[in-house]
Design a binder for these strands. Structure first.
Length: 722
DNA sequence: GAGCACTGC
């Protein structure tokens, strides 16, 4: 076994005591003496249920508690406050309670946004317990498919996307007195939209209402983990920045001495070295030796994870005498739930887990017992190219912020070690933070939402950081093509309807078109399936079996009708759904989500009085509906069996996972085009060329064939990127 | 004949 050249470096992370300081010098808070629980105070809290003393003691031992007075003082004096804090300060659970206890609930609801559903749900549960209320009463949550709030709810944990949706119904968000944007450093698409919205709403609500004379100001609190403080503060008119130090155990960081050509191989060696280190290195302390501590490896995708899994399983039987058992647990989003659960099971005594994860383990889920992190330094990222209007999926270096986040996963319960599979010099050159989503995504949907809220001038909108102009222009163009906006950029009646659906504009257009073609039931089902990640899961070793099973559902009418068959069969399986999914390599969790989306879309249709009608087996109607939304995504077969797009004559191929990969129909419509090694079209419908002019005379009024002037010697990728 | 990271409404 070769030795990776690792360089020991002391990390800056320290276990820090509770303290708070301001970078603006607006106030100074001296470190308080250790807090003794104040019994008078305990007796004064009025809640319907008895709060156990342990909870009160626990709350008061959190780092954020010593900052309480300073926080409240700042909330009182400033319309916006930025709070910078590491994990483990208790800010997300405690600060809303401080606001609640200090009068802010009397002026309106206190909202706390989260980027993820699970976080909103679990944190609100915790807070309702701490306050002695039933969940869904004073404290509740609101996420898609699940609203646990009532008229009494004053502390409302919600996803950022949910709050954007509420702004579409009430553009002043007038029922909220305080809005806290938590995890702001993640810069999700929706959080970035909220920055702009809240800033303008706050300004509007500074003044008394011109008619009613009501004064209803909005307080904004931004909570972030990394040091984007200056950016946030400047944007919010020099809002004060407060720092709360967290409680992390120290993590020692090691870098490689040389750049690693193959980080999967480097990860293999590093994992094995960590695992057997105690056999040779007597300096490893007793605690570390005894409880072992699990290893978490960050890779970029399923392929790498399965490769490393295989390599490890090959090596494990040949571990030296005295080595413990090593249990390999892969985890990535597409892995079925049952198999995901394996990473949370405690390793049996005398053995150790090694978890091979994607970015899912960076923020989305927390695994206990990690002492070692192995960081590849890479991540897979989707980037929208506005010039050509297509996504590509690339492996790119992570940012410093991301590296720090990964490292921190080793210091949650005890002192840890982080092995970065890159040099310190490489680390120094990384970007300080990742490119925010709004700068690298297709924002057609965001623009439709903003226009619904009443923001017409998108290029002039006060974003924290603006999306690329080309991206805005591309989206406006698309919305105009779909007839969601008119020539002057204002929302059409159709556009207003489209915005109501929680779907991308091309899908909502398809859905509305399906009313006209009397096949809304089928289109609703298909769209629901397309809006979840793949419903099939193919275990690596069962490829052939899966191919055979998939044939049961196959329809020559295309992927969409094939999906429809899957759904119909799933419905028939009724009480044996779990077994049926298992037998047919279908991901049950995905199917449950499909059903949820389907039911939600039906509700929206009812509210708009759109009839749900089935077309029986007349699937041409379904295909024509999709042309209504996806007429820009069509291609024609070439003599060389590849395709050229009809709109701009670029070479593309049907993705091999498509059911039509071998059929090669003359004209196709696709839902997605992704560039990886080639430009691949996914989710394919065979269509008749003549339908295009029939359904979209504006674009295909002239014969489609005329647009197909072939340009010889064009290679697929080049023609897209040039 | 290729492999889709993650999240949200």
């Amino acid at each position: 076994m070769t030795q990776p050249n690792v360089n020991k470096k002391q990390n800056n992370n320290k276990v820090v005591n509770k303290s708070i300081h301001s970078n603006k010098g607006k106030f100074e808070l001296k470190k308080k003496p250790t807090q003794q629980p104040n019994n008078d105070k305990i007796n004064n809290i009025k809640t319907p249920m008895e709060i156990p003393k342990e909870i009160i003691l626990q709350k008061e031992s959190l780092p954020v508690f010593s900052a309480k007075d300073a926080l409240l003082k700042n909330f009182k004096e400033h319309p916006t406050v930025i709070i910078i804090s590491e994990t483990g300060t208790g800010k997300t659970t405690q600060i809303p309670q401080y606001l609640y206890e200090n009068g802010y609930k009397d002026k309106g609801i206190i909202a706390i946004t989260q980027p993820r559903r699970v976080a909103a749900v679990s944190i609100s549960k915790r807070v309702s317990q701490e306050m002695g209320y039933e969940l869904g009463e004073e404290v509740g949550y609101c996420v898609r498919f699940d609203d646990k709030t009532n008229e009494k709810t004053k502390l409302k944990y919600m996803t950022d996307g949910m709050l954007v949706r509420e702004a579409m119904l009430d553009s002043s968000l007038s029922k909220y007195s305080v809005i806290i944007l938590d995890e702001a450093h993640e810069r999700t698409l929706n959080t970035d939209v909220l920055f702009g919205l809240l800033k303008s709403i706050q300004k509007r609500r500074e003044k008394k209402h011109p008619i009613s004379g009501v004064y209803n100001p909005l307080k904004i609190i931004i909570m972030s983990a990394t040091l984007d403080a200056e950016l946030f503060s400047q944007y919010f008119n020099n809002a004060p920045v407060l720092y709360i130090e967290g409680r992390q155990f120290p993590v020692h960081i090691y870098y490689t001495e040389e750049t690693q050509k193959d980080y999967v191989d480097a990860a293999l060696i590093t994992v094995l070295q960590i695992h057997i280190a105690h056999l040779t290195d007597k300096s490893i302390d007793k605690e570390e030796q005894e409880d072992g501590g699990d290893i978490l490896v960050f890779l970029t995708g399923r392929d790498e994870i399965e490769n490393l899994e295989k390599l490890l399983l090959d090596r494990i039987p040949r571990l030296p005498k005295g080595a413990k058992d090593l249990i390999v647990c892969p985890i990535f989003s597409a892995l079925p739930q049952e198999q995901q659960m394996k990473v949370f099971e405690k390793a049996p005594k005398g053995s150790r887990k090694v978890i091979l994860a994607t970015n899912i383990a960076e923020t989305s889920l927390t695994i206990n017992g990690i002492r070692y992190v192995v960081d590849s330094g890479a991540v897979k990222s989707k980037i929208f190219n506005p010039k050509i209007g297509i996504d590509s999926l690339n492996i790119i270096p992570i940012s410093k912020a991301s590296a720090k986040q990964r490292t921190g996963r080793a210091g949650r319960e005890f002192e840890g070690k982080c092995y970065r599979l890159y040099t310190q010099n490489t680390f120094e050159k990384l970007d300080s933070s990742s490119i925010p989503e709004i700068k690298r995504s297709n924002i057609a949907n965001v623009i439709l939402q903003l226009k619904t809220i009443g923001i017409n001038d998108i290029l002039g909108f006060d974003f924290l950081e603006s999306p690329p102009v080309a991206s805005v222009m591309k989206s406006l163009e698309l919305l105009y093509c779909l007839e969601a906006i008119s020539e002057d950029g204002s929302l059409t009646e159709l556009g207003k309807k489209m915005a109501l659906f929680p779907l991308d504009p091309m899908y909502s257009k398809t859905l509305i078109k399906s009313i006209e073609f009397e096949c809304s039931e089928e289109v609703l089902i298909i769209i629901s399936i397309l809006s979840v990640e793949s419903i099939f899961f193919t275990p690596k070793e069962k490829k052939k079996e899966v191919e055979d099973v998939k044939k049961i559902f196959f329809s020559p009418e295309g992927d969409h009708i094939t999906f429809l068959n899957v759904f119909r069969e799933f419905q028939k399986s009724k009480s044996q759904q779990q077994q049926w999914c298992f037998d047919h390599f279908i991901n049950l969790k995905s199917m449950v989500k499909v059903v949820n989306v389907f039911e939600q879309l039906i509700k929206y249709c009812f509210s708009l009085k759109l009839p749900i009608v089935s077309c029986g087996s007349d699937f041409d109607r379904v295909k024509k509906s999709f042309i209504g939304g996806f007429f820009l995504n069509t291609a024609i077969l070439q003599p060389d069996k590849k395709y050229k797009t009809m709109v701009d004559n670029k070479e593309i191929q049907i993705h091999p996972t498509s059911f039509l990969f071998e059929q090669k129909p003359q004209h196709i419509l696709y839902n997605e085009l992704t560039i990886t090694t080639k430009a691949f079209a996914r989710n394919i419908i065979p269509i008749e060329g003549s339908w295009l002019a029939e359904i979209c005379p504006k674009y295909y009024g002239t014969r489609p064939q005329q647009q197909q002037k072939s340009t010889p010697n064009q290679t697929s990728i080049d023609s897209f990127t040039n």
